[in-house]
Design a protein around this nucleic acid. Sequence first.
DNA 1: ACCTGAACACCGTTCAAGT
DNA 2: ACCTGAACACCGTTCAAGT
Lengths: 222, 222
Amino acid sequence: MSNTLQRKAGRPNKSVLSRELILAAALDVLERTGPEDFTMAALAADLGVKTPALYHHVGGKKEVLAGMREVISDRIDTSAFGTRPWPEAVSRWARSYRAAFAAHPYAIALLATLPVAGAHRTLTMYEAVAAGFRDGGWPEQLVVNNIVALENFILGSALDAVAPADMLEPGDFADKVPVFNAALRARGRTNSCAPAADQAFELGLEAIVAGMDARRSVHPRA
Amino acid sequence: MSNTLQRKAGRPNKSVLSRELILAAALDVLERTGPEDFTMAALAADLGVKTPALYHHVGGKKEVLAGMREVISDRIDTSAFGTRPWPEAVSRWARSYRAAFAAHPYAIALLATLPVAGAHRTLTMYEAVAAGFRDGGWPEQLVVNNIVALENFILGSALDAVAPADMLEPGDFADKVPVFNAALRARGRTNSCAPAADQAFELGLEAIVAGMDARRSVHPRA
DNA sequence: ACCTGAACACCGTTCAAGT
DNA sequence: ACCTGAACACCGTTCAAGT
């Protein structure tokens, strides 16, 4: 993309690349190529540059992936924690979290398993959420465990949101799994017209938040 | 490993490889090498064979990964569904599910994002779980959505179980996230001596199962 | 049928050479 | 400082040649 005039060797008058530019392009390219073909070469080509040029701005492919995750993390909305009661605030945060990753379907598969050490923007998100829990009356020792448990559900759901819709289809194995197959057919007959993955997410979110909320009142403010 | 005598070209008297042998070795090799260095070459070397030999028994690396997942899936215990009340049965299944993957830490990262189309042993597990839900009194349309929601939580938790323990550590960024940092310190002061990931899993499991159970009684047997 | 050996088109990364 | 071009050690996969 961008300017595709062939460039000669040697330093250009005005720098063509930057870390920010590379990360933005990376999110674009990934969704166009899929995780399989997301290569440093494809990223460079999109930026109108040869592959080794990237290494002047990022340490390698791992750093590109970590940076992409930071960009996505930055878009998670934690604003409800100041203004809404805990159950609603945490639900809004969870939806925003899942949506931020669902906006980059292929990113989830690539980033979910990546260590986040020293990710400042991600830590900033945790700070807002932790404050929301504290203000919601949670005892301090339970805050992190609850956040992690919710995050496990959210990330698992984000992975599920990307999975092919027919992933659970038994095919010609259907007669071997009659109960499951019948339940799969019945799922299509719900009132909701939302995608199946969204239904499962909302149902699970409601359950886990309600379950946590019930437990919260057992451990009062202090 | 195994017999490392150099073999000549040409068909051996007795076949050295089989699909089962390859998959068993794959799980071993993966945990020894890590996901980064888990290559077809490393797998072949472990089996005392040259890389191309593998292609007589499996279609490629993707098929090896899918096969590994099937082997792991097969170890998930669904037996509690016949004998225990729903909340306990589903909790036992969830723990066994997470444990099966936690036994192969590196496998989770590699397999979590893999499509499961046509995975017979995985479908057999779903059949047992679906029957457990039906017998537990769940309306048919909710069965699959509930299973998927639980699975999202379980897989997310399995990913978390593999993450480095210091993953959330703010380091020298600690003073920028005081509330979160304090909560992280308080987490260490719980009664439980279980690993942090286990605590979060158990807490979330209790919440989600309790939340679902409360909802189940709203939709009575039919 | 089932193994080896050689080959192919890639990959991420390094680095000297140019401006 | 920041780009290109050439090179390196790999990767997964294919296939002819051997038994």
